[in-house]
Design a protein around this nucleic acid. Sequence first.
DNA 1: CTTGACCTTACCATCATGGGAAGGACTATC
DNA 2: GATAGTCCTTCCCATGATGGTAAGGTCAAG
Lengths: 155, 155
Amino acid sequence: MNIGEAAKASGVSAKMIRYYEASGLIPAAGRTQSGYRVYSDSEVQMLRFIRRSRDLGFPVEKIEELLALWRDRSRHSADVKRLAQEQIDGLERKISEMQAMMETLQHLADACCGDQRPDCPILVDLGSGPSFTTDHRPTKLGQFAANAVTARPRS
Amino acid sequence: MNIGEAAKASGVSAKMIRYYEASGLIPAAGRTQSGYRVYSDSEVQMLRFIRRSRDLGFPVEKIEELLALWRDRSRHSADVKRLAQEQIDGLERKISEMQAMMETLQHLADACCGDQRPDCPILVDLGSGPSFTTDHRPTKLGQFAANAVTARPRS
DNA sequence: CTTGACCTTACCATCATGGGAAGGACTATC
DNA sequence: GATAGTCCTTCCCATGATGGTAAGGTCAAG
């Protein structure tokens, strides 16, 4: 199987397969004489594992740990469960932060008549500085949520 | 006010103030003879507006529009409300996607005994390829959620 | 033997943010 | 007035996962 076929079979783009190889997440694939990468079924299975882990939101760093456990036949399932729970906790945290943003925005939007007049409580709130939801932590949440909202839905 | 004082007063880091200026989000600040940037109260207010907008998850691109409306005294509040609603919709979409991830993970974690034994339904699911929650869209959601979970909480 | 579809590497962009270096400016203390 | 320390300036680099593109090699079908 060449990289294109492996990509189709695994759901991981050829580009990302090369990236995972270059960054050490997966071992370097075999090559044909002409330099084409060659993939076996088990390598495709590993790629599917990665793809599925990404679908569940695991960062590549954690997938490295998951892969190690996957390969380790004497693993403790507790270790896997712990990784999963950390991921759940992280998702929960982010979800509640975004929900807080959303609720604030919803309150503001509800209070905005949304017609031709310029008066707008949304702008008043934005301009009035710290309000009940602002805590002025220097966090990356803003970027995160912005990415969240602007990320391409499908390509 | 120099940039450090403006940063403290607005909650936007000096680094980011320079970045916003360089990228055209805000006009170039005045300078002292020695080249230090100088900020007035109204400029600090604008920075607070930006900070608050970021706190609500707006990407810089949208903040540009919000700022334009903020300055436009003949704006229609409907335009502001529309931007807010788009942001709400985006947040809602991402939240539900993350909730789906979380629920899948929770099901898997619940089924994992989490002891010393190696048998783990989580790894089985990850290794078994597409399951009920996988739709194989080539999306950036994975990256998004990974960012979500790994983003520094506060620094 | 040509055409087109695929592969290779290499570089650039994203988005908002921080880190750090090298050098200049200001301030307070001795 | 010298010196120390804190601030400012610009410039470059890194992040994380992904896509794009370009230049060039390879393969298979007609």
